[in-house]
Structures are given as C-alpha cells and as structure tokens.
Design a protein around this nucleic acid. Structure first.
Lengths: 200, 200, 200, 200
DNA sequence: CGTTAATCGAGACGGTACGTCCTGTCTTCGG
DNA sequence: CCGAAGACAGGACGTACCGTCTCGATTAACG
C-alpha cells in the first residue's frame, strides 16, 4: 500500500526553478543597490544579471511593477510583532524597518523604491497589499491605547496613522532633513506626536 | 538707420513663441490629468498634443524632469503669504495647496507628480528648488511661535516640519485614507500635532 | 535460458509509440495543407497539434529539416516503376507525382515544400536522398533510349535530365502559368523536349 | 520672384537618408554572401552590420520579405535588351543573369535566394513583380520567332517559357549537376530545346 | 510479480529575434 | 534663428520559438 490520501495537487511538467526565483530577486536588489535609481532597472538587465531568460521573468511576474513589489517584500522581512507592553514602544517597533537579516542593501534601496509606488494605479494596489499588514497592526495598537487610557478617548485612528507614518515615510523617501537620523527617527516622531508641540 | 537708442541685447533671428511654451505646459498637465499616471507621459505624446516639434521642447527644457518641474511650478501658483496672527492659522495656510486660479486639474495631478520627485538625484534637486520657499516660510512661522511662546521652547524645527508636511504630502500622494478629506486635512493635522495624542 | 535464437536487438524500457510517429507526421502535413506556407510551421505547433511533447519529436528527428523530409517521403509514396516499352511513356511516368493513396493534401503541400529544400546545405542533402532514386531511374531510361536509337546518340544525359525535371518542378513550385494543367504537364513537356521547338 | 511653377511635392521633415538605404542593402548582400544561407539573415544582424537602427529598416520595408526582394532587384541590374537578330541569341541573352557591374556577390547569393521565393504567398507576389519584365520580353521574342518562321507555328508560348526557364532556374537553385557550368548553361538549354532530343 | 529502464505528456529553462515604441539629436523647409 | 515635421542611432519592451532539461506517470521485457 502506497497512499490512499490525496497528495498535494502537483501540476504537470517541469516545476519552476527556485534557483531562478532567487537569482531574479537578487539581481533586482543588486541593481537597485548599485544604481540607486529605478530608471536604470530594465527587465533585460535583470535577466542578464540573473543569468536567466526574459521569459523566465515574465512567466512569474506580469511586469516590472509586480516584480519590484516582490523584491521589496523579500527585502523587508516579516512584519514585526509588537511586544504589547506600551503603546509608545509598539509604535516605534512598527515604524522601524526590519530588513531581512544580513541584507545591507535595504537602506540603500528603500528610498528609491518609494517613489515607484504611485506611478500607476496597479503599482499602488500591489504596494498597498505589501504594507497593509503592518498598517493593520498599528491600528490595533492605537485602539488598544484608547481602551487602556494611554491615548485620548476621542482619537481619530486613521488621522493618527497618517501622523505617524507620513513623517517617517517622507523622510525615508525625500531625505529632506539631513540632520534627522533614520534610526532614531521613529522614536522621535512617536514622542512628538504623543506629546504635541504646543507649550503647556 | 532705424533706431538710435541701445535696445535690449536682442538676439537675432525669429524669437521664441510664447504660444509654444503655453501649449507645451498645457499638454503636460492635460496628459497627466487624463492618464492619472506619469508612465504614459512621453515627450512624443506631449509634442503631438501641443502641436509642437520635439526639438521645440528640448530647446526649452533639458528633459522630462525639468519640464515636469516647470509644469508643477505653473500649476501651484505663488507661495501663499501667512497672515502672521496665529501659528495655527499660518501653518494651515502654508499646508494648503493654492492652485492656479481656475485650474481644476491640480488635485488630480498632484498625487501622480510626487512619486516622480525622487526617481533621480537631479529630479530631486529640481523639486527641492520648487518647494523650498514654502518650507522656509514654515520654518519662520515655527521659530516665531517659539519666540511668542505659542510653541515649546525646546522644539526641534526640522522634526516639526516633517511632522506637519509628511502626513499632508503622504495623504495627497497615497490617498490611503478615503475618509480624510483633503480640504480639511491641513487643519486637522495642525491641530493634532499642536495638541498631541496622549491622554492628559 | 529463454531463447536460443538471436532475437532482434531489442532495447529495454518502454518502446517508442507508433501512434506518436503517425500523429506527428500527420500534424506536419495538416499544418502545411492548412497554412500553405512553411513559415507557419513551428515545432511547438506540430507538437500541440499532434498532442505530443516536444521532446518526443526531437527524440525521433534532429530538427525541422529531417522531419520535413520524412513527411514528404511519406507523402510521396514509392518510386513508380516504368513499364520499359517506350522512352516517352517511361519519362512521363517518372515525371508524374504519385501521392500516397487517398491523401488529397499532396498537391497543396508540394509547392510549399520545394522552397525549403535549399535553405541550408544539410536540408539539401536530405532532399537529394529523397528524390535520388527517381532521378537515377530517369537516367537509366535516357541511356536505354540512346542504346535503342530512340534518342540521339550524342545526348547529354545530365542536361536532358535538367530539361525534363526543371520545367515540371518549376511549374509545381511557382505556379507561374495558370493555363498549364498539372496532370497533363509531364506529357507535354516530354513531347516538346523530344521534338524540339524549331520549325522544320 | 523665385518660382511660380509648382516644384516637386516635397514632403516636410527630414528626408530619408540615401546613405542608410545603401548601407542596408549592402549589409543584406554582404551577410548573404558570407553566410550562404538565408536563415542566418536577421533584421538585427542587418541593422548592426549597416550601422543603422532597426526602425530605419522598418520605416522603409514592411519585413524581411520585401527587403530581400529589393536587395535582389538591386543585385540583378536592369533587364537586358535583346539584340533582335536571332531568336537563339535573344533567348540566351534573356536567360543569362546580368549582375550589377562590379558585384561579385551575385553568383554566391542567387542560389540561396531562390528558395525563399515561395515561402509565403506575399513573398511570391513580390518576387513575381521582380522578374516579370524579363519574362514578358521572352514572350515577345518567342512570338516574334513564330512570325518570322524561326519557330513552329503551333508553338505554345507559355509551355516554351517553362521549358527554357525551368532548367536554368532549377540548376541555379539546386546545383544538382556539378558538370553543368552556369555560364554556358543558357546556350546549351536553348540549343537543346530548339533542336529536340529525338533521333532524326 | 516486482524491478528496471526508456518512453510518454507537459512545461520550464537559457537564448535569440521579432516588430513596436520612445529617447534625445539631426536635418530639412518655410516663416 | 525659430517653427513643424520627421528621420536618425540606440535601446527596452513583451512575445514567440528554438532545442534542452526535468518532472511524475506509463509501459514493456527481464529476472
């Protein structure tokens, strides 16, 4: 007797190469880290760098957009799990980018990815899907803060989400303020938003 | 002899057509408003729409980047002048986009311009130049608020700038929160940042 | 010991499917008859039409060239055997195409096969092998005619072979003269070449 | 006053470069002469060899087919003008290929062009157009021969055309008979067809 | 009767060429 | 000299096949 239970529904034909997947994603990240611009990122260059035919890319992704999205997904690593002790700590955790372990390319790449997000509605949709888990976790933390009394009872959750993520994303995207260090920024933004800027 | 007074150092040959300038800028804004995406914005399409030769565009701008910058500059209208009575009112004024009178395309175009800004260092430099006057005015308002005691004495001006502009730009770019109306957003952001979100 | 007589050198493993052979050849002929052009004949299309994997084709033939050659070989049927009574009759017999019984595709396919023959030296070699038996038989008939006195004693056999086959092949290939019926053509060519066109 | 008569209807814009035309045709002939096969003739290779963008080729020709036709047209030189003294001489003249002066590539290229002619109906149409003038002149010579009594009164002109051109084209295409020299072939074919091969 | 081994279908693989589109430059003519 | 028009070299796009390769599943003959 071999097996009476139905195994996984394996599709016929040669299975897709996991090596190719990795090589392609890696080529994307390499080229981004080298060029620091998305303009220099052509499918042909990716295929050449990955040692892969163009068709192998198009078999997996519909275009540059979704390929980029997956590359970033890979880069970002899993959504961090907030400790749940204080609202402040949890928000800082969720605002901090956790790159895939050992990937130094993350910080170089992030700023030049952001601008791509809104170039087309489709790209935007894909990107939303990528970051929505983290955003949902932030909403939960805010709601918990209201319940526990750490935050105002009349808080507008959506507005607050914008107050917290807007500055961090913008700084990451635009690098407008050279004096603001990226590693300490989440903490400073959270503290300022918690406290307000008015004099007492 | 036709003229004895020294005229302005007029170069010989046919002068540049002001009609062409307008037609080109208008074509850019039209195409952006129609397509809602910058990807579909090619120099060839702009030239065709404007009824203009490609060379006429390249004679005036170095490339798509600076053309876009000028188009936005035109769209935005002049930097608003804050009244100077209260920090709150002035910040709201400066965070509100004032479109060129009678141009309904502004709100449709803004979100799809933002992402272009950081695609290359050059484009970023141009964009900074466009918005730096407004940012400088905001700094002045913040410093005045510190002097008048309306704001905390230990306020980090650059961080606060980020706290105010980040959410507004992000919402304009990403349209993440459908419930947040764009016209009332600046006021709500300013109020929230002034007050903070912590329970008292 | 199971067998003392030396059986056929049967290789182990699953034997090749005769159904596949037929399906492939048939798919080739179908596609040729449908498309009336060799350009539309891709290995992938053949495999799909035959319901066969590409590897099954490449296991049997080295490429499109030899597959085509075999398809034609199948189509043509065996070399006809001249009766040997008169040179005229024998030449007409040898110039007439005898298609495999019941295959109406032959006449549609022939013209579009011819051009393929000379696309590469290899293809040419294969083709020569296909038609050489028939050509050799024609040479014999011509030599016999010289011996029997039916033909000139100083006849150049190779030149005459060209005089006879050239017009028939060309008409079949190019269809230049719509008035010349394909079924009566061999007889008319033979008669004209035998008699000459000069006035007496 | 410059000119009141309507000049040639010059189209606006930069005129097409004659240099490009020549370079492209020359590249085609070079690649054919080198490779001796049409399979190795890609548009990309032609563009590279000619130092020309692919678009410059597609602006002038609809595809490989019509480009090839023009290349051959150029190679062949003008249709020869028969002297009109004897049918024999005129036919030999018309059957002999006159290559463009000083172009040694002609003889290498001709054989590998022929097979292309019938790969598709469109290609066939183009080719017919290329050689129809020469064929029409041959018809005239044959009709004149009938009138002058040099040829049989009951001659079938179309059949005779086939008898003459078939062998020459076939030998040129297939190179089946190595002993038959291409330069003397037209004369030998004409003589044989004139005289017939039957014993007297 | 189970092992062995070549076949089958399916389809992914690294490539090459296709024909289209856009870039930024140039070359023509007319204003 | 500027204007439109449009050709130029170059290069990326996404598609279609090429001929090869890897899968799990058949299908015989051998042991």
């Amino acid at each position: 007797m071999t097996s009476t239970v139905a195994g996984p529904p394996r599709s016929p034909g040669r299975p897709r190469s996991a090596r190719a997947d990795e090589a392609i994603i890696d080529a994307v990240l390499d080229l981004l880290a080298e060029g620091n611009t998305v303009e220099a990122l052509s499918i042909e260059a990716i295929a050449a760098r990955a040692g892969v035919g163009k068709a192998t890319i198009y078999r997996r992704w519909s275009g540059k957009e979704s390929l980029l999205a997956d590359a970033i997904r890979t880069l970002k690593g899993p959504t961090p799990e907030p400790a749940g002790e204080s609202v402040r700590e949890d928000l800082i955790t969720l605002l901090t980018v956790v790159a895939r372990k050992g990937d130094e390319r993350a910080l170089k790449i992030m700023p030049c990815i952001m601008p791509e997000v809104n170039r087309s509605p489709e790209q935007y949709r894909i990107w939303q899907e990528v970051i929505s888990p983290r955003r949902e976790k932030m909403r939960e933390v805010l709601r918990r803060g209201i319940r526990t009394g750490e935050l105002r009872a009349d808080l507008d959750v959506e507005l607050t989400l914008l107050l917290l993520t807007g500055p961090v994303v913008m700084q990451r995207t635009m690098r407008w303020h050279p004096g603001l260090d990226d590693t300490t920024l989440p903490a400073r933004v959270v503290d300022a938003v918690l406290a307000g800027i008015s004099a007492r």
